[in-house]
Design a binder for these strands. Structure first.
Length: 457
RNA sequence: GGCGUCGUACCCAAGUGGUCUAAGGGAUCGGUUUGCAAAACCGCCAUUCGCCGGUUCGAAUCCGGCCGACGCCUCCA
């Protein structure tokens, strides 16, 4: 049984899907006004982990990730660059999808865009207005009235009265309470051509309504899991919860999961601190996508993960260690058995315990060491090697940090072969110089009992 | 101010009442192995879990105080 920490109840709970064997999963996607940064991708990688674990335990997952392609920031960017909104949003949507693919994030089943679902949003807002959960301001905006929803604040443990009492300066905004949030924003000059007709006049949707409308459309009014970064708890998810619950009269989401921030050198990323990275920056610094995956997965998703450029070698060494055991096992047998070693039970238990990847890694590495010992002592059967191959593959289906095995280019292969000839004749200087040459070409050699092994660095 | 999280070795990071004289990874150093390397293995690396006090037969784990870092409190993953 998988246990997950539910932000709504603030405890770990056993995961019980609404429909046996199926999971409806909604993850808050990017606002496509710029490149997603590595903090965004920490969250997306957490969601990918969750999905991979659910899939590993044989759930059928319907995964929906929205693309926020209209909001203050996207409009501002388009204005600043004097471009059409969709030119901006298409560019960054594509960049996001490319980065996701590079990071081996499994594709969602649907990537609904906010601008394709204006009608659904309007419809939901109309319901809220008709049920008196929402009101129309003088300028034709529509606001959700949080005082009408007694559970408001539950996700962040703020009581409704606390929130209501917090602010009194409501007059200037034409709001009943400053904490009331926009469902629909009337058209402003800055919005330019970005506008849709609605029963309340020209305007555009508020931020939160898109997720309520689109999750409902793709997953139904009541679904299993909704994820995002911690900062989305409030106001975004709180507001979604309010909108959906009040318009649909359903419990909405059973499990709310939130990942912690990624920090850089212990500090929150910010452009002013000059510690702000996007994925392509990491590549420039010499990280592979897998290196980044490893760093993210080496910390629990609910604790801060500390990123540092200095951690590059740490990630590389750890991944190489796993790559080594994979090669050694494949050297014994390249078959993969259907049975897994017993330690997989401990490994799975860690994953089932609220996705404890650091512990799962520890269990895996411990097995790596023991298996290496057995190989050194020639104390491993072919069947054990086959089971080992299966474990490495299974591990990789969750962590996805190993590449597919290298194929040697012909020129590399001929260099390796000629070095082999020199070695047989004990012409060490010549063989060593070839080894150095190969190293400079990015290929590392190891002379083992069963022949020379070549790996790409 | 309100709500909440965290502080474990040189670095990263699990563990959250006894199996902990604290997992695992990385780095360093020493050894085995190797033509030399690489990889692998072995050893070394926190009697101690921010500090102080309390509860308990027993605490890194619970409680209180203090110090420090951080997040949210209207559009930031």
């Amino acid at each position: 049984m998988i246990k997950l920490y539910n932000s709504l109840t603030q405890k770990k709970e056993e995961f019980v899907p609404i429909q046996k064997g199926k999971v409806g999963l909604y993850t808050c996607g990017p606002t496509v006004y710029d490149f997603s940064h590595i903090g965004n991708f920490r969250t997306f990688l957490f969601e990918d982990l969750l999905k991979r674990v659910l899939l590993a335990f044989d759930y059928k997952v319907h995964h929906v990730m929205n693309i926020t392609d209209v909001d203050d920031k996207t409009i501002k960017k388009a204005n600043d660059e004097k471009k059409e909104l969709n030119e901006i949003t298409n560019k960054y949507t594509n960049a996001f999808l490319d980065d996701s693919k590079s990071l081996r994030i499994l594709e969602a089943d649907d990537y609904p865009k906010a601008t394709d679902h204006i009608a659904e949003m309007i419809q939901m807002i109309e319901v809220l207005v008709s049920k008196k959960f929402a009101y129309i301001s003088k300028d034709g905006s529509v606001f959700f009235k949080i005082s009408k929803y007694s559970d408001y604040g539950r996700l962040v443990n703020l009581s409704n009265s606390t929130i209501l009492n917090e602010q009194q300066l409501s007059d200037e905004y034409d709001l009943d309470s400053v904490n009331d949030f926009a469902l629909w924003k009337s058209h402003k000059n800055n919005d330019g051509k970005v506008a849709w007709d609605s029963p309340w006049g020209k305007g555009r949707p508020g931020w939160h309504i898109e997720c309520s409308a689109m999750s409902t459309k793709f997953l139904g009014a009541h679904f299993d899991i909704h994820c995002g970064g911690v900062d989305n708890k409030f106001p975004h998810h709180e507001n979604e919860l309010a909108q959906s619950t009040c318009s649909l009269n359903t419990p909405f989401v059973n499990y709310w999961l939130h990942s912690e921030f990624l920090t850089v050198e212990g500090k929150k990323m910010s452009k002013s601190l000059n510690n702000f990275y996007i994925i392509s920056d990491l590549v420039k610094e010499g990280f592979t996508y897998e290196d980044f995956r490893f760093i993210v997965l080496s910390a629990h998703y609910r604790s801060k993960v500390n990123f540092s450029i200095k951690r590059k070698d740490e990630a590389k060494s750890a991944i190489r260690r796993i790559e080594e055991i994979r090669q050694r096992l494949l050297g014994i047998s390249n078959e993969v058995s259907n049975t897994l070693p017993d330690v997989v039970n401990d490994f799975n238990e860690s994953l089932m315990d609220d996705l404890d990847t650091p512990k799962a890694l520890a269990i895996f590495f411990n097995w790596v060491r023991l298996t290496n010992q057995n190989i050194d002592q020639k104390n491993i059967s072919e069947n054990e090697a086959k089971a080992g191959n299966a474990f490495v593959e299974y591990f990789n289906s969750i962590f996805a940090i190993l590449d597919s095995p290298n194929v040697l280019p012909d020129e590399i292969k001929s260099l390796v072969d000629s070095r082999e000839d020199y070695r047989k004749n004990k012409e060490w200087k010549k063989s060593d110089s070839i080894r150095e040459k190969l190293l400079s070409l990015g290929w590392k050699l190891k002379d083992t009992k069963s022949g020379t092994k070549v790996t790409k660095i």
